[in-house]
């Protein structure tokens, strides 16, 4: 069956409260796509808040938010980014690696693979969804923090919100209890930085 034959509208919901920061989702994701070092479809961000002895650590799994009216889609010079079944995806046949999409995304969820010169980002593992499997990240997540649901089930998640980094963002992927301060680890126009893994970046910048 082809994805386009399916009427389903997919949504990803991430419960940040459940996440234990184990990084399994992003390693599974990189293995799924043989992604190059230094580039990430998804990352688990860490943030320490508070002063000794009252300190907490928070996590945020973050990936492409499958935006409605997506900025990357509009920016694409080759019409290579399409929106189907609730998934904003890159058509690798059309993409010429120009990188305009990167400049448009407010969180940096898209990058151009330096080896294949094709843009890549989270596509909700469409290849898995179309054969009835769970995405690689959801499948491995020990805490069931990541879920793919259908749009019609959204009402079960009244407390889930889109993670925005620009007023115009219209994320369809939703987070439960995400801390907005995490946005300081993301930069518009720059793919997710591997430097987020360096522990020096864990503390909140004041």
């Amino acid at each position: 069956m082809k994805m386009s034959d399916i009427a389903k509208q997919y949504r990803m919901v991430i419960d940040v409260e459940r996440c234990i920061g184990c990084h399994a989702c992003e390693v599974a994701c990189k293995q799924e796509f043989e992604a190059p070092l230094g580039f990430f479809r998804t990352m688990t961000l860490y943030m320490d808040t508070g002063n000794y002895p009252k300190v907490k650590r928070e996590f945020l799994p973050i990936m492409c938010r499958q935006c409605e009216d997506a900025a990357c889609l509009h920016a694409c010079t080759q019409k290579a980014i399409v929106d189907r079944n609730g998934i904003v995806m890159v058509d690798s046949e059309r993409c010429n690696g120009c990188g305009e999409c990167i400049k448009a995304c407010s969180i940096g969820a898209i990058y151009v693979n330096p080896i294949s010169r094709i843009a890549e980002k989270c596509n909700l593992c469409a290849h898995r969804l179309e054969i009835g499997m769970k995405p690689a990240c959801e499948e491995t997540c020990v805490s069931d923090a990541i879920q793919i649901i259908e749009e019609k089930e959204l009402k079960r998640f009244a407390n889930a919100k889109g993670f925005k980094n620009a007023a115009t963002d219209k994320p369809r992927t939703l987070h439960i209890n995400a801390n907005g301060i995490m946005a300081q680890k993301l930069r518009k126009g720059h793919p997710f930085s591997p430097m987020n893994y360096e522990i020096f970046t864990w503390a909140v910048r004041s």
């Binding site: 184990c22 399994a24 599974a28 491995t140």
Partner: peptide, 25 residues
Amino acid sequence: VLGVTGNPLDPNTNGKLCAKAHGGV
């Protein structure tokens, strides 16, 4: 081996794997 996934029959882990399992490939 292109990847790994948890074995849902394992009563300890119910088909879940940690980051190391995927990295180990």
